[in-house]
């Protein structure tokens, strides 16, 4: 089992000056998995990345990257890292920076050019980074990470500060890469857009891993109520709210909460009151709701 995993984190704890940064974290990542790492600032995301990269050592537990200790030459050859807010030398061109990293990674110079083209920067390769937009800089960072065909990409907030269009591009890259067998572990704040872009969500809270699963699994685990929003016909809101057992949220709208699995029964009740209702909308708990549930509730794991 373990051999199949690209990454195995086994009961890892890390303390900084007595403060717990990571607390008994277990996780494993298989080839081709797209895994999102969520958590508030200071929840331990970057600490986890630094441990996986071998920059710091765990106080307890162990980590294996393709079967090797973090920082081992084979581990470093298998993974690529893109830190948050990396600032490449402004006076160098995109191509020069790519050639530089290609040499550090023992990769052919030709691949540097291919990698630039892959992120759509072939036309800007001879321009200095100073002239690049935020999105172009981030794409350059990704191009750098793709050098040497790593098996695991560690991306720290890769889409933060990017406009929605460039974000979409990034997630499309992730799809392509994972289809080719590359695993991606990335931290993110962009919750709503992650829904169909990841195979798995990890949620860290105060150093502990409080959730690990697909969106559907986490949704079932959290067992958050489904919200049915009903719009009443004029002047009948109170009556409708009383008969449905819901709560008025403004002039005409009423929220009816029901547990997962009971929504059909509620919908039947709403349609029985056809004369009082002019519109209805069913809202399953969003990723933001689920995230909030796991990252706020103590003992939610």
């Amino acid at each position: 089992m373990t051999e199949q995993n690209i990454l195995t984190v086994d009961a890892v704890s890390k303390y900084f000056d007595g403060v717990t940064a990571l607390d008994h974290v277990n996780l494993s990542i298989r080839p081709g998995a797209r895994v999102a790492l969520l958590g508030h600032n200071g929840a331990g995301k970057t600490t986890l990345f630094r441990l996986i990269l071998g920059f710091i050592k765990p106080d307890q537990g162990s980590i294996k990257v393709v079967g090797h200790a973090p920082g081992h030459i084979m581990a470093r050859r298998s993974l690529a890292y893109l830190p948050e807010n990396v600032a490449f030398p402004e006076t160098l061109t995109g191509r020069e920076i790519m050639h530089f990293f290609a040499r550090l990674k023992d990769v052919d110079a030709h691949e540097a050019v291919l990698s630039l083209a892959r992120v759509g920067l072939e036309g800007a390769g001879d321009r200095r980074v100073r002239t690049y937009s935020k999105g172009m800089r981030q794409r350059l960072g990704l191009a750098q990470a793709l050098l040497g065909a790593p098996r695991l990409l560690l991306l720290d907030e890769p889409t933060s500060g990017l406009d929605p269009l460039v974000r979409r591009e990034f997630y499309n890259f992730f799809d392509e890469l994972s289809a080719a067998g590359t695993s991606i572990l990335f931290s993110s704040h962009g919750l709503s857009e992650l829904a169909d872009k990841t195979d798995r969500l990890l949620i860290l809270r105060a150093g502990g891993l409080v959730a690990d699963g697909s969106l559907q699994e986490l949704r079932a685990q959290a067992a958050l109520p489904i919200r049915i929003r009903v719009k009443a016909v004029e002047n009948r809101s109170d009556e409708l709210a009383a008969r449905l057992g819901g709560q008025r949220i403004n002039g005409r709208q009423i929220d009816v909460m029901c547990a997962m699995g009971e929504q059909l029964e509620k919908v039947r009740q709403v349609s029985a009151l056809r004369g009082l209702v002019c519109d209805m909308e069913i809202r399953p708990p969003s990723l933001t709701d689920i995230y909030q549930y796991f990252s706020m509730q103590p003992g939610a794991s």
Binding site: L53, F55, V86, F88, P89, L104, K105
Partner: peptide, 13 residues
């Protein structure tokens, strides 16, 4: 400070 050192040190050198 510029975040390029982690990039360099993540490479196999």
């Amino acid at each position: 400070e510029r975040g390029t050192l982690p990039l360099i040190l993540a490479s196999p050198l």
